[in-house]
Simulated scan of single mutants.
Amino acid sequence: MTIIMIILGMSFVTMLPRVIPAFVVEKLQFRPWINQWLSAIPYAALGALIFPGILSVVPDQPFIGIIGGIIAIILALFGLNVVLVVIGAILTVFLLTL
């Protein structure tokens, strides 16, 4: 019984900070520059997650990952679907490692 209460308590404490902003942020009005800054956070987080992986695709040859990342950027600038951008980058890295 104690374990169930601990699990329920931990799930509530974890869920609470995730649910509250969904209701509170909707009612707040921010200045335009704050909205612009907040909208850039997902891209910054995504870049922080992807960039180390680009450099460590082939540990001895980081330029292969960099070339794959550049190809992905070029394909994205052409407005291709995200799936096609990822496939293009993967195919580039695969061909360079042969």
Rank of each mutant, 00 (worst) to 15 (best):
M1E: 13
I3V: 15
I3R: 14
I4V: 14
I4M: 15
I4W: 13
M5W: 13
I7L: 10
I7A: 09
G9N: 08
S11R: 03
V13G: 11
V13H: 11
V13A: 15
T14S: 10
T14W: 14
L16S: 04
P17N: 04
P17M: 01
P17R: 01
R18I: 04
V19K: 08
V19C: 12
V19Y: 07
I20A: 10
P21A: 04
P21Q: 07
P21T: 03
A22E: 15
A22H: 10
A22M: 14
F23M: 12
V24D: 13
V24P: 06
V24T: 14
V25N: 11
E26P: 09
L28A: 12
L28N: 04
L28R: 10
Q29I: 12
Q29D: 12
Q29F: 13
F30K: 04
F30Q: 08
R31Y: 14
R31F: 09
P32E: 07
W33G: 00
W33I: 08
I34V: 14
I34A: 14
Q36F: 15
Q36S: 15
W37D: 00
W37R: 12
I41N: 00
I41G: 09
I41Q: 04
P42C: 01
P42H: 10
Y43L: 11
A44C: 06
A44N: 06
A44E: 02
A45C: 14
L46D: 05
L46G: 08
L46M: 08
L46K: 13
G47T: 06
A48P: 00
A48C: 15
I50L: 14
F51V: 09
I54Y: 02
I54R: 04
I54V: 15
L55C: 00
L55N: 03
V57D: 04
V57Y: 02
P59A: 05
P59M: 01
D60M: 09
Q61P: 02
P62L: 02
P62S: 04
F63R: 10
F63C: 03
I64C: 06
I64T: 05
G65S: 05
G65A: 04
G65R: 07
G65E: 04
G65H: 05
I66K: 06
I66M: 11
I66G: 06
G68P: 05
G69D: 01
I70W: 09
I71T: 09
I73H: 09
I73V: 09
I74R: 03
A76E: 02
L77I: 03
L80I: 05
N81W: 11
V82E: 14
V82Q: 08
V85W: 05
V85K: 02
V86M: 11
V86L: 09
I87R: 03
I87G: 04
I87W: 03
G88L: 00
I90K: 07
T92P: 02
T92Y: 02
V93C: 08
V93A: 05
F94Y: 14
L95E: 07
L98F: 10
L98D: 00
